[in-house]
Design a binder for these strands. Sequence first.
RNA 1: GCGAAAGUAGUUCAGUGGUAGAACGACGGCUUCCCAAGCCGUAGGUCGCGGGUUCGACCCCCGUCUUUCGCUCCA
Length: 507
Amino acid sequence: MANNEELFKKIIAHAKEYGFIFPSSEIYDGLSAVYDYGQYGCELKNNIKQYWWKAMVNLHENIVGIDSAIFMHPTIWKASGHVDAFNDPLIDNKDSKKRYRADVLVEDYLQKIEDKINKEVEKAAKRFANFDEQLFRQTNPRVLEHQKKYDEVHSRFAACMEKSDWAGLKALIEELEIACPISGTRNWTDVRQFNLMFATQMGSVAEGTDTIYLRPETAQGIFVNYLNVQKTGRMKVPFGIAQIGKAFRNEIVARQFIFRMKEFEQMEMQFFVRPGEELKWFDYWKNERIRWHESLGMEASCYRFHDHEKLAHYANAATDIEFDFPFGFKELEGVHSRTDFDLKAHQQYSGKKLQYFDPETNESYVPYVIETSIGVDRMFLAVFSHAYREETLPDNSVRTVLRIPPILAPVKVAVLPLVKKDGLPEKAREILRPLQYQFNCQYDEKDAIGRRYRRQDAIGTPYCITVDNQTLEDNTVTLRDRDSMQQERISIPEIELRLNQLLKCNL
RNA sequence: GCGAAAGUAGUUCAGUGGUAGAACGACGGCUUCCCAAGCCGUAGGUCGCGGGUUCGACCCCCGUCUUUCGCUCCA
Protein backbone atom coordinates (compact mmCIF):
# COMPACT_ATOMS: atom_id res chain seq x y z
CA MET A 1 0.00 0.00 0.00
CA ALA A 2 2.70 2.44 1.00
CA ASN A 3 4.50 1.41 -2.15
CA ASN A 4 1.50 2.24 -4.27
CA GLU A 5 1.22 5.60 -2.60
CA GLU A 6 4.84 6.31 -3.45
CA LEU A 7 4.22 5.19 -6.99
CA PHE A 8 1.17 7.42 -7.30
CA LYS A 9 3.21 10.41 -6.09
CA LYS A 10 5.84 9.66 -8.69
CA ILE A 11 3.19 9.47 -11.38
CA ILE A 12 1.81 12.86 -10.39
CA ALA A 13 5.30 14.34 -10.32
CA HIS A 14 6.08 12.84 -13.70
CA ALA A 15 2.87 14.25 -15.15
CA LYS A 16 3.94 17.72 -14.10
CA GLU A 17 7.63 17.39 -14.84
CA TYR A 18 7.02 16.34 -18.42
CA GLY A 19 4.24 18.73 -19.34
CA PHE A 20 1.19 16.51 -19.03
CA ILE A 21 -0.71 18.01 -16.11
CA PHE A 22 -0.16 21.18 -14.11
CA PRO A 23 -2.02 22.29 -10.99
CA SER A 24 -4.38 25.13 -11.90
CA SER A 25 -3.32 28.71 -11.21
CA GLU A 26 -0.07 27.53 -9.73
CA ILE A 27 1.64 30.92 -9.59
CA TYR A 28 -1.26 32.17 -7.48
CA ASP A 29 -0.87 29.32 -5.01
CA GLY A 30 -3.17 27.04 -6.93
CA LEU A 31 -6.87 26.32 -7.06
CA SER A 32 -7.74 23.07 -5.41
CA ALA A 33 -9.27 20.20 -7.35
CA VAL A 34 -8.65 21.92 -10.67
CA TYR A 35 -5.91 20.95 -13.10
CA ASP A 36 -4.61 22.15 -16.44
CA TYR A 37 -3.44 19.88 -19.22
CA GLY A 38 -0.04 20.77 -20.63
CA GLN A 39 1.46 20.30 -24.07
CA TYR A 40 1.62 16.49 -23.96
CA GLY A 41 -1.37 16.01 -21.68
CA CYS A 42 -3.53 17.91 -24.11
CA GLU A 43 -2.42 15.66 -26.98
CA LEU A 44 -3.04 12.50 -24.99
CA LYS A 45 -6.44 13.74 -23.88
CA ASN A 46 -7.42 14.65 -27.43
CA ASN A 47 -6.31 11.23 -28.64
CA ILE A 48 -8.43 9.53 -25.99
CA LYS A 49 -11.46 11.57 -27.01
CA GLN A 50 -10.87 10.85 -30.66
CA TYR A 51 -10.48 7.13 -30.01
CA TRP A 52 -13.80 7.10 -28.17
CA TRP A 53 -15.58 9.22 -30.78
CA LYS A 54 -14.41 7.00 -33.60
CA ALA A 55 -15.49 3.86 -31.76
CA MET A 56 -18.89 5.22 -30.80
CA VAL A 57 -19.92 7.54 -33.62
CA ASN A 58 -17.93 6.57 -36.69
CA LEU A 59 -18.17 2.83 -36.18
CA HIS A 60 -21.89 2.78 -35.39
CA GLU A 61 -24.23 3.77 -38.18
CA ASN A 62 -27.02 4.42 -35.72
CA ILE A 63 -25.10 6.74 -33.40
CA VAL A 64 -24.54 10.42 -34.02
CA GLY A 65 -22.68 13.02 -31.99
CA ILE A 66 -23.76 16.43 -30.75
CA ASP A 67 -22.25 19.27 -28.76
CA SER A 68 -24.83 20.86 -26.51
CA ALA A 69 -24.22 24.01 -24.47
CA ILE A 70 -23.03 23.94 -20.90
CA PHE A 71 -25.70 26.47 -19.95
CA MET A 72 -29.20 25.05 -19.95
CA HIS A 73 -32.61 26.09 -18.78
CA PRO A 74 -32.71 25.82 -14.97
CA THR A 75 -35.85 23.70 -15.01
CA ILE A 76 -33.86 20.94 -16.67
CA TRP A 77 -32.08 20.35 -13.38
CA LYS A 78 -35.37 20.22 -11.53
CA ALA A 79 -36.64 17.61 -13.96
CA SER A 80 -33.45 15.57 -13.75
CA GLY A 81 -33.60 15.57 -9.98
CA HIS A 82 -30.28 17.34 -9.49
CA VAL A 83 -31.73 20.36 -7.72
CA ASP A 84 -33.42 18.25 -5.06
CA ALA A 85 -31.20 15.24 -4.86
CA PHE A 86 -27.85 16.95 -4.60
CA ASN A 87 -28.37 19.81 -2.18
CA ASP A 88 -27.48 17.84 0.87
CA PRO A 89 -27.53 19.59 4.24
CA LEU A 90 -24.56 18.26 6.19
CA ILE A 91 -23.73 18.33 9.87
CA ASP A 92 -20.62 17.27 11.77
CA ASN A 93 -20.34 15.76 15.19
CA LYS A 94 -17.54 17.65 16.90
CA ASP A 95 -16.51 14.72 19.10
CA SER A 96 -16.43 11.83 16.66
CA LYS A 97 -15.47 14.10 13.74
CA LYS A 98 -17.99 12.20 11.69
CA ARG A 99 -20.07 13.90 9.06
CA TYR A 100 -23.70 13.10 8.49
CA ARG A 101 -26.46 14.24 6.25
CA ALA A 102 -28.67 16.23 8.57
CA ASP A 103 -31.82 15.17 6.77
CA VAL A 104 -30.85 11.53 7.09
CA LEU A 105 -30.41 11.90 10.85
CA VAL A 106 -33.97 13.11 11.15
CA GLU A 107 -35.26 10.51 8.72
CA ASP A 108 -33.61 7.80 10.79
CA TYR A 109 -35.30 9.22 13.86
CA LEU A 110 -38.64 9.12 12.09
CA GLN A 111 -37.95 5.58 11.02
CA LYS A 112 -37.44 4.59 14.65
CA ILE A 113 -40.85 5.95 15.58
CA GLU A 114 -42.37 4.05 12.74
CA ASP A 115 -40.65 0.89 13.91
CA LYS A 116 -42.12 1.37 17.36
CA ILE A 117 -45.60 1.68 15.93
CA ASN A 118 -45.13 -1.42 13.85
CA LYS A 119 -43.95 -3.32 16.89
CA GLU A 120 -47.08 -2.38 18.78
CA VAL A 121 -49.16 -3.55 15.87
CA GLU A 122 -47.28 -6.83 15.65
CA LYS A 123 -47.63 -7.49 19.35
CA ALA A 124 -51.33 -6.82 19.25
CA ALA A 125 -51.80 -8.94 16.17
CA LYS A 126 -50.27 -11.88 18.00
CA ARG A 127 -52.41 -11.34 21.05
CA PHE A 128 -55.83 -10.98 19.47
CA ALA A 129 -57.60 -13.18 17.03
CA ASN A 130 -59.84 -11.24 14.64
CA PHE A 131 -57.33 -8.43 14.72
CA ASP A 132 -58.46 -5.27 12.95
CA GLU A 133 -55.21 -3.50 12.18
CA GLN A 134 -56.75 -0.32 10.90
CA LEU A 135 -58.95 0.05 13.93
CA PHE A 136 -56.01 -0.67 16.20
CA ARG A 137 -53.90 2.02 14.54
CA GLN A 138 -56.72 4.50 14.88
CA THR A 139 -57.53 3.80 18.52
CA ASN A 140 -54.59 2.39 20.47
CA PRO A 141 -53.35 5.18 22.75
CA ARG A 142 -49.64 4.28 22.49
CA VAL A 143 -49.80 4.09 18.74
CA LEU A 144 -51.64 7.37 18.60
CA GLU A 145 -49.03 9.00 20.77
CA HIS A 146 -46.21 7.77 18.55
CA GLN A 147 -48.15 8.77 15.48
CA LYS A 148 -48.72 12.26 16.83
CA LYS A 149 -45.03 12.67 17.53
CA TYR A 150 -44.23 11.35 14.08
CA ASP A 151 -46.59 13.73 12.32
CA GLU A 152 -45.33 16.66 14.33
CA VAL A 153 -41.66 15.98 13.60
CA HIS A 154 -42.37 15.11 10.02
CA SER A 155 -44.23 18.31 9.26
CA ARG A 156 -41.53 20.45 10.90
CA PHE A 157 -38.85 18.49 9.07
CA ALA A 158 -40.64 18.88 5.76
CA ALA A 159 -41.05 22.61 6.36
CA CYS A 160 -37.34 23.01 7.10
CA MET A 161 -36.37 21.09 3.99
CA GLU A 162 -38.84 23.00 1.87
CA LYS A 163 -37.49 26.38 2.96
CA SER A 164 -33.88 25.24 3.27
CA ASP A 165 -34.14 26.39 6.87
CA TRP A 166 -30.92 24.86 8.17
CA ALA A 167 -30.98 26.66 11.51
CA GLY A 168 -34.44 25.19 12.05
CA LEU A 169 -33.19 21.75 11.09
CA LYS A 170 -30.38 21.98 13.59
CA ALA A 171 -32.81 23.12 16.28
CA LEU A 172 -34.96 20.11 15.46
CA ILE A 173 -32.01 17.75 15.76
CA GLU A 174 -31.09 19.24 19.13
CA GLU A 175 -34.66 19.18 20.36
CA LEU A 176 -35.07 15.53 19.44
CA GLU A 177 -31.81 14.84 21.25
CA ILE A 178 -30.44 12.94 18.29
CA ALA A 179 -26.97 11.69 19.18
CA CYS A 180 -24.05 10.64 17.06
CA PRO A 181 -24.08 6.82 16.80
CA ILE A 182 -20.32 6.76 17.24
CA SER A 183 -19.51 9.24 19.96
CA GLY A 184 -22.96 9.16 21.48
CA THR A 185 -22.79 12.92 22.02
CA ARG A 186 -25.03 15.68 20.79
CA ASN A 187 -22.24 18.13 20.15
CA TRP A 188 -23.16 19.20 16.63
CA THR A 189 -21.86 21.87 14.27
CA ASP A 190 -24.30 24.07 12.38
CA VAL A 191 -26.04 22.51 9.43
CA ARG A 192 -24.37 23.59 6.23
CA GLN A 193 -25.51 23.07 2.73
CA PHE A 194 -23.25 21.78 0.04
CA ASN A 195 -24.45 22.29 -3.47
CA LEU A 196 -23.40 19.84 -6.08
CA MET A 197 -24.05 22.32 -8.85
CA PHE A 198 -22.22 25.55 -9.53
CA ALA A 199 -24.65 28.41 -9.84
CA THR A 200 -24.06 31.52 -11.86
CA GLN A 201 -26.14 34.43 -13.05
CA MET A 202 -27.66 35.03 -16.41
CA GLY A 203 -29.20 38.34 -17.35
CA SER A 204 -32.63 37.62 -18.70
CA VAL A 205 -34.20 34.31 -17.97
CA ALA A 206 -37.93 33.93 -17.33
CA GLU A 207 -39.28 35.90 -14.41
CA GLY A 208 -38.36 35.00 -10.88
CA THR A 209 -35.06 33.32 -11.45
CA ASP A 210 -31.86 34.33 -13.11
CA THR A 211 -29.80 31.56 -11.61
CA ILE A 212 -28.21 29.30 -14.16
CA TYR A 213 -26.29 26.14 -13.33
CA LEU A 214 -23.15 24.83 -14.89
CA ARG A 215 -24.18 21.35 -15.96
CA PRO A 216 -23.18 18.56 -13.59
CA GLU A 217 -23.48 15.99 -16.39
CA THR A 218 -23.68 16.16 -20.16
CA ALA A 219 -26.52 13.64 -20.42
CA GLN A 220 -29.34 16.16 -20.04
CA GLY A 221 -28.13 18.07 -23.09
CA ILE A 222 -28.71 14.87 -25.03
CA PHE A 223 -32.15 14.17 -23.56
CA VAL A 224 -33.53 17.62 -24.29
CA ASN A 225 -32.27 17.33 -27.89
CA TYR A 226 -33.29 13.76 -28.49
CA LEU A 227 -36.31 14.62 -30.57
CA ASN A 228 -34.43 17.25 -32.58
CA VAL A 229 -31.80 14.70 -33.49
CA GLN A 230 -34.29 11.92 -34.11
CA LYS A 231 -36.32 14.03 -36.50
CA THR A 232 -33.56 15.88 -38.34
CA GLY A 233 -31.32 12.83 -38.56
CA ARG A 234 -34.18 10.50 -39.53
CA MET A 235 -33.05 8.23 -36.71
CA LYS A 236 -34.93 5.02 -35.99
CA VAL A 237 -35.03 3.33 -32.61
CA PRO A 238 -32.68 1.87 -31.54
CA PHE A 239 -30.28 4.77 -31.99
CA GLY A 240 -27.74 6.65 -29.93
CA ILE A 241 -26.55 10.19 -29.33
CA ALA A 242 -22.98 10.74 -28.19
CA GLN A 243 -21.38 13.78 -26.64
CA ILE A 244 -18.05 14.81 -25.21
CA GLY A 245 -18.05 17.82 -22.95
CA LYS A 246 -17.16 19.53 -19.73
CA ALA A 247 -19.20 19.09 -16.59
CA PHE A 248 -18.88 20.70 -13.18
CA ARG A 249 -19.43 19.41 -9.68
CA ASN A 250 -18.75 21.13 -6.44
CA GLU A 251 -17.11 18.27 -4.62
CA ILE A 252 -16.92 18.49 -0.87
CA VAL A 253 -13.64 16.69 -0.82
CA ALA A 254 -11.68 16.35 -4.02
CA ARG A 255 -8.74 14.03 -3.90
CA GLN A 256 -6.67 11.65 -5.89
CA PHE A 257 -5.31 14.04 -8.45
CA ILE A 258 -7.44 14.22 -11.61
CA PHE A 259 -9.65 11.34 -10.45
CA ARG A 260 -12.12 13.68 -8.81
CA MET A 261 -12.10 17.25 -10.07
CA LYS A 262 -14.50 20.14 -9.90
CA GLU A 263 -14.25 20.70 -13.62
CA PHE A 264 -14.05 17.52 -15.62
CA GLU A 265 -14.93 16.09 -18.97
CA GLN A 266 -17.34 13.32 -19.84
CA MET A 267 -17.81 11.09 -22.84
CA GLU A 268 -21.42 10.00 -22.78
CA MET A 269 -23.68 8.12 -25.12
CA GLN A 270 -27.40 7.73 -24.60
CA PHE A 271 -28.92 4.86 -26.52
CA PHE A 272 -32.67 4.98 -27.12
CA VAL A 273 -34.46 1.65 -27.28
CA ARG A 274 -37.90 0.12 -27.41
CA PRO A 275 -39.42 -0.37 -23.94
CA GLY A 276 -38.89 -3.93 -22.80
CA GLU A 277 -35.71 -4.33 -24.79
CA GLU A 278 -33.57 -2.27 -22.45
CA LEU A 279 -31.91 -5.15 -20.64
CA LYS A 280 -30.87 -6.78 -23.88
CA TRP A 281 -29.21 -3.53 -24.91
CA PHE A 282 -27.75 -3.04 -21.48
CA ASP A 283 -25.87 -6.31 -21.94
CA TYR A 284 -24.87 -5.34 -25.44
CA TRP A 285 -23.29 -2.07 -24.27
CA LYS A 286 -21.65 -3.67 -21.31
CA ASN A 287 -19.80 -5.97 -23.70
CA GLU A 288 -19.21 -3.31 -26.28
CA ARG A 289 -17.60 -0.96 -23.77
CA ILE A 290 -15.30 -3.50 -22.18
CA ARG A 291 -14.23 -4.48 -25.68
CA TRP A 292 -13.31 -0.85 -26.33
CA HIS A 293 -11.13 -0.75 -23.23
CA GLU A 294 -9.45 -4.04 -24.04
CA SER A 295 -8.72 -2.94 -27.60
CA LEU A 296 -6.09 -0.60 -26.16
CA GLY A 297 -4.00 -3.58 -25.20
CA MET A 298 -3.81 -3.09 -21.46
CA GLU A 299 -4.22 -6.35 -19.55
CA ALA A 300 -7.78 -7.57 -19.04
CA SER A 301 -6.97 -7.91 -15.35
CA CYS A 302 -6.89 -4.10 -15.10
CA TYR A 303 -10.66 -4.05 -15.46
CA ARG A 304 -13.57 -5.50 -13.62
CA PHE A 305 -17.31 -5.03 -13.54
CA HIS A 306 -19.03 -3.87 -10.44
CA ASP A 307 -22.76 -4.42 -10.67
CA HIS A 308 -24.85 -2.09 -8.57
CA GLU A 309 -26.96 -3.80 -5.95
CA LYS A 310 -28.70 -0.63 -4.91
CA LEU A 311 -30.03 1.16 -7.94
CA ALA A 312 -30.67 4.84 -8.32
CA HIS A 313 -34.31 5.83 -8.55
CA TYR A 314 -34.13 6.13 -12.33
CA ALA A 315 -32.30 2.89 -13.13
CA ASN A 316 -33.31 -0.72 -13.48
CA ALA A 317 -29.82 -2.03 -14.09
CA ALA A 318 -26.38 -0.51 -13.58
CA THR A 319 -22.78 -1.57 -13.68
CA ASP A 320 -19.45 0.15 -13.34
CA ILE A 321 -16.35 -0.70 -15.27
CA GLU A 322 -13.68 -0.35 -12.65
CA PHE A 323 -9.99 0.14 -13.34
CA ASP A 324 -7.05 -0.90 -11.24
CA PHE A 325 -5.70 2.57 -10.38
CA PRO A 326 -2.63 2.98 -8.17
CA PHE A 327 -5.06 3.58 -5.30
CA GLY A 328 -7.12 0.49 -6.06
CA PHE A 329 -10.04 -0.50 -8.25
CA LYS A 330 -12.23 2.55 -8.82
CA GLU A 331 -15.02 3.46 -11.19
CA LEU A 332 -13.86 4.44 -14.64
CA GLU A 333 -17.07 4.12 -16.62
CA GLY A 334 -20.72 3.55 -15.86
CA VAL A 335 -23.24 1.65 -17.95
CA HIS A 336 -26.77 2.32 -16.77
CA SER A 337 -30.22 1.35 -17.85
CA ARG A 338 -32.02 4.61 -17.08
CA THR A 339 -35.50 3.47 -18.12
CA ASP A 340 -37.69 6.26 -19.45
CA PHE A 341 -37.17 8.32 -16.31
CA ASP A 342 -35.39 11.29 -17.87
CA LEU A 343 -37.50 11.67 -20.97
CA LYS A 344 -40.70 11.23 -18.95
CA ALA A 345 -39.54 13.88 -16.51
CA HIS A 346 -38.73 16.31 -19.29
CA GLN A 347 -42.06 15.58 -20.90
CA GLN A 348 -43.77 16.44 -17.65
CA TYR A 349 -41.79 19.58 -16.83
CA SER A 350 -41.71 20.97 -20.34
CA GLY A 351 -45.23 19.98 -21.29
CA LYS A 352 -43.90 18.81 -24.66
CA LYS A 353 -44.47 15.34 -26.01
CA LEU A 354 -41.22 13.42 -26.30
CA GLN A 355 -42.66 10.31 -27.85
CA TYR A 356 -41.31 8.32 -30.71
CA PHE A 357 -43.56 6.77 -33.31
CA ASP A 358 -42.32 3.30 -34.11
CA PRO A 359 -43.28 2.44 -37.69
CA GLU A 360 -42.58 -1.23 -37.12
CA THR A 361 -45.01 -1.73 -34.29
CA ASN A 362 -47.19 1.15 -35.34
CA GLU A 363 -47.28 2.68 -31.88
CA SER A 364 -45.91 5.66 -29.99
CA TYR A 365 -43.86 5.45 -26.84
CA VAL A 366 -41.24 7.19 -24.77
CA PRO A 367 -38.03 5.27 -25.47
CA TYR A 368 -36.00 3.64 -22.74
CA VAL A 369 -32.40 4.72 -22.41
CA ILE A 370 -29.12 2.89 -21.93
CA GLU A 371 -26.33 5.23 -20.91
CA THR A 372 -22.61 4.73 -21.22
CA SER A 373 -20.68 7.40 -19.38
CA ILE A 374 -16.93 7.60 -19.01
CA GLY A 375 -14.77 10.33 -17.50
CA VAL A 376 -12.12 11.57 -19.92
CA ASP A 377 -9.87 12.56 -17.05
CA ARG A 378 -10.29 9.19 -15.39
CA MET A 379 -9.48 7.48 -18.66
CA PHE A 380 -6.43 9.70 -18.91
CA LEU A 381 -5.37 8.72 -15.42
CA ALA A 382 -5.97 5.04 -16.16
CA VAL A 383 -3.82 5.17 -19.29
CA PHE A 384 -1.17 7.35 -17.73
CA SER A 385 -0.78 5.49 -14.47
CA HIS A 386 -0.79 2.13 -16.20
CA ALA A 387 1.83 3.37 -18.65
CA TYR A 388 4.28 4.64 -16.05
CA ARG A 389 7.15 2.22 -15.48
CA GLU A 390 10.54 2.36 -13.91
CA GLU A 391 12.45 -0.41 -15.59
CA THR A 392 15.77 -1.81 -14.52
CA LEU A 393 17.83 -2.56 -17.61
CA PRO A 394 20.37 -5.39 -17.97
CA ASP A 395 23.21 -2.99 -17.10
CA ASN A 396 21.34 -2.09 -13.88
CA SER A 397 20.54 1.42 -14.98
CA VAL A 398 16.94 2.53 -14.58
CA ARG A 399 14.82 4.02 -17.31
CA THR A 400 11.51 5.76 -16.81
CA VAL A 401 9.16 4.97 -19.64
CA LEU A 402 5.54 5.66 -20.44
CA ARG A 403 4.13 2.62 -22.18
CA ILE A 404 1.17 4.51 -23.54
CA PRO A 405 -0.76 2.56 -26.17
CA PRO A 406 0.86 3.86 -29.38
CA ILE A 407 -2.45 4.98 -30.84
CA LEU A 408 -2.92 7.34 -27.89
CA ALA A 409 0.67 8.54 -27.54
CA PRO A 410 1.04 12.34 -27.68
CA VAL A 411 4.10 12.14 -29.93
CA LYS A 412 4.14 9.27 -32.38
CA VAL A 413 7.66 9.45 -33.73
CA ALA A 414 10.92 11.26 -33.06
CA VAL A 415 13.47 11.78 -35.82
CA LEU A 416 17.02 11.89 -34.53
CA PRO A 417 20.36 12.40 -36.26
CA LEU A 418 22.85 10.11 -34.54
CA VAL A 419 25.32 12.98 -34.26
CA LYS A 420 25.01 16.66 -34.93
CA LYS A 421 27.42 16.82 -37.87
CA ASP A 422 28.37 15.16 -41.16
CA GLY A 423 25.14 16.34 -42.75
CA LEU A 424 23.01 14.05 -40.57
CA PRO A 425 20.81 16.86 -39.15
CA GLU A 426 20.00 18.00 -42.68
CA LYS A 427 19.15 14.47 -43.77
CA ALA A 428 17.01 13.97 -40.66
CA ARG A 429 14.99 17.11 -41.32
CA GLU A 430 14.45 15.95 -44.87
CA ILE A 431 12.91 12.73 -43.52
CA LEU A 432 10.95 14.58 -40.87
CA ARG A 433 9.11 16.97 -43.15
CA PRO A 434 6.75 14.58 -44.97
CA LEU A 435 6.01 12.71 -41.74
CA GLN A 436 4.85 15.85 -39.98
CA TYR A 437 1.70 16.05 -42.06
CA GLN A 438 0.52 12.71 -40.80
CA PHE A 439 2.00 12.19 -37.35
CA ASN A 440 2.81 14.32 -34.37
CA CYS A 441 6.63 14.34 -34.65
CA GLN A 442 9.60 15.61 -32.76
CA TYR A 443 13.07 16.46 -33.92
CA ASP A 444 15.96 16.38 -31.44
CA GLU A 445 19.68 16.73 -32.07
CA LYS A 446 20.84 17.82 -28.61
CA ASP A 447 22.90 15.49 -26.39
CA ALA A 448 23.96 11.89 -26.85
CA ILE A 449 21.61 9.51 -28.63
CA GLY A 450 20.89 7.46 -25.50
CA ARG A 451 19.76 10.50 -23.61
CA ARG A 452 17.44 11.45 -26.43
CA TYR A 453 15.92 7.98 -26.48
CA ARG A 454 15.25 8.29 -22.77
CA ARG A 455 13.66 11.68 -23.21
CA GLN A 456 11.28 10.18 -25.74
CA ASP A 457 10.62 7.21 -23.42
CA ALA A 458 9.67 9.63 -20.68
CA ILE A 459 6.89 11.18 -22.75
CA GLY A 460 5.81 7.85 -24.22
CA THR A 461 6.88 8.28 -27.85
CA PRO A 462 6.49 4.79 -29.27
CA TYR A 463 8.94 5.08 -32.20
CA CYS A 464 12.27 6.75 -32.87
CA ILE A 465 13.85 7.06 -36.29
CA THR A 466 17.60 7.47 -36.20
CA VAL A 467 19.68 8.78 -39.08
CA ASP A 468 23.29 7.57 -39.23
CA ASN A 469 26.14 7.45 -41.73
CA GLN A 470 24.67 4.41 -43.42
CA THR A 471 21.59 6.48 -44.15
CA LEU A 472 23.68 8.73 -46.37
CA GLU A 473 24.94 5.67 -48.27
CA ASP A 474 21.81 3.56 -48.76
CA ASN A 475 18.80 5.64 -47.65
CA THR A 476 17.92 3.42 -44.69
CA VAL A 477 17.24 4.43 -41.11
CA THR A 478 16.76 2.57 -37.85
CA LEU A 479 13.33 2.36 -36.27
CA ARG A 480 13.43 1.90 -32.51
CA ASP A 481 10.56 0.44 -30.55
CA ARG A 482 9.95 2.12 -27.19
CA ASP A 483 8.93 -0.98 -25.25
CA SER A 484 11.44 -3.54 -26.50
CA MET A 485 14.16 -0.98 -27.28
CA GLN A 486 14.84 -3.13 -30.36
CA GLN A 487 15.72 -1.57 -33.68
CA GLU A 488 15.03 -2.57 -37.22
CA ARG A 489 16.51 -1.06 -40.32
CA ILE A 490 14.07 0.12 -42.94
CA SER A 491 14.35 2.23 -46.07
CA ILE A 492 13.18 5.82 -46.01
CA PRO A 493 10.29 5.30 -48.46
CA GLU A 494 8.99 2.52 -46.21
CA ILE A 495 8.74 4.68 -43.08
CA GLU A 496 5.26 6.03 -43.58
CA LEU A 497 3.74 2.67 -44.45
CA ARG A 498 5.49 0.97 -41.54
CA LEU A 499 4.30 3.59 -39.07
CA ASN A 500 0.77 3.31 -40.35
CA GLN A 501 0.91 -0.44 -39.82
CA LEU A 502 2.23 -0.03 -36.30
CA LEU A 503 -0.31 2.63 -35.38
CA LYS A 504 -3.26 0.78 -36.82
CA CYS A 505 -6.45 0.88 -34.80
CA ASN A 506 -7.63 -2.44 -33.29
CA LEU A 507 -11.29 -1.53 -33.08
C1' G B 1 -15.29 21.55 6.70
C1' C B 2 -12.26 19.23 11.05
C1' G B 3 -7.49 17.07 12.79
C1' A B 4 -1.85 16.01 11.56
C1' A B 5 2.73 17.21 8.59
C1' A B 6 5.15 20.19 5.06
C1' G B 7 6.40 24.88 2.03
C1' U B 8 14.39 27.06 0.11
C1' A B 9 16.63 26.97 -7.92
C1' G B 10 12.62 23.60 -13.04
C1' U B 11 13.08 18.84 -9.70
C1' U B 12 15.01 16.22 -5.19
C1' C B 13 16.94 18.07 -0.93
C1' A B 14 21.13 20.47 2.37
C1' G B 15 21.72 24.73 5.44
C1' U B 16 23.06 28.51 9.67
C1' G B 17 20.36 34.38 14.21
C1' G B 18 25.36 37.77 10.46
C1' U B 19 25.62 38.68 2.07
C1' A B 20 22.04 31.53 -0.26
C1' G B 21 24.38 25.80 -1.38
C1' A B 22 24.68 20.65 -3.87
C1' A B 23 23.03 17.02 -7.22
C1' C B 24 20.10 16.23 -11.31
C1' G B 25 17.60 18.99 -15.09
C1' A B 26 17.66 23.28 -18.74
C1' C B 27 20.59 26.27 -22.21
C1' G B 28 25.44 27.19 -25.30
C1' G B 29 29.94 24.73 -26.86
C1' C B 30 33.74 20.48 -27.38
C1' U B 31 33.82 15.14 -27.80
C1' U B 32 30.92 10.81 -29.24
C1' C B 33 28.28 5.91 -35.00
C1' C B 34 23.15 3.61 -30.87
C1' C B 35 20.44 3.64 -25.17
C1' A B 36 20.47 9.06 -18.92
C1' A B 37 29.06 8.55 -20.77
C1' G B 38 32.92 12.68 -20.43
C1' C B 39 34.82 17.93 -20.44
C1' C B 40 34.13 23.54 -20.47
C1' G B 41 30.76 27.43 -19.81
C1' U B 42 25.82 30.07 -18.78
C1' A B 43 21.18 31.11 -16.75
C1' G B 44 17.91 30.37 -12.73
C1' G B 45 15.90 31.85 -5.64
C1' U B 46 12.25 38.85 -2.14
C1' C B 47 14.00 31.02 1.16
C1' G B 48 4.93 30.52 0.17
C1' C B 49 2.74 35.43 1.82
C1' G B 50 1.92 39.16 5.87
C1' G B 51 3.14 40.84 10.64
C1' G B 52 6.12 40.63 15.21
C1' U B 53 10.81 39.88 18.35
C1' U B 54 16.01 41.51 17.17
C1' C B 55 21.27 46.01 15.61
C1' G B 56 20.25 41.99 12.09
C1' A B 57 15.34 36.56 10.57
C1' C B 58 15.49 31.43 5.47
C1' C B 59 16.22 30.22 10.84
C1' C B 60 12.51 32.28 16.75
C1' C B 61 6.97 33.77 17.59
C1' C B 62 1.86 34.83 15.59
C1' G B 63 -1.42 34.94 11.57
C1' U B 64 -2.62 33.59 6.60
C1' C B 65 -2.51 30.80 2.04
C1' U B 66 -1.34 26.38 -0.45
C1' U B 67 -0.10 21.28 -0.74
C1' U B 68 0.01 16.22 1.21
C1' C B 69 -2.20 12.49 4.62
C1' G B 70 -6.74 10.62 7.62
C1' C B 71 -13.07 11.14 7.80
C1' U B 72 -18.88 11.45 4.21
C1' C B 73 -20.50 11.54 -1.98
C1' C B 74 -19.29 10.42 -7.30
C1' A B 75 -17.77 10.35 -13.57
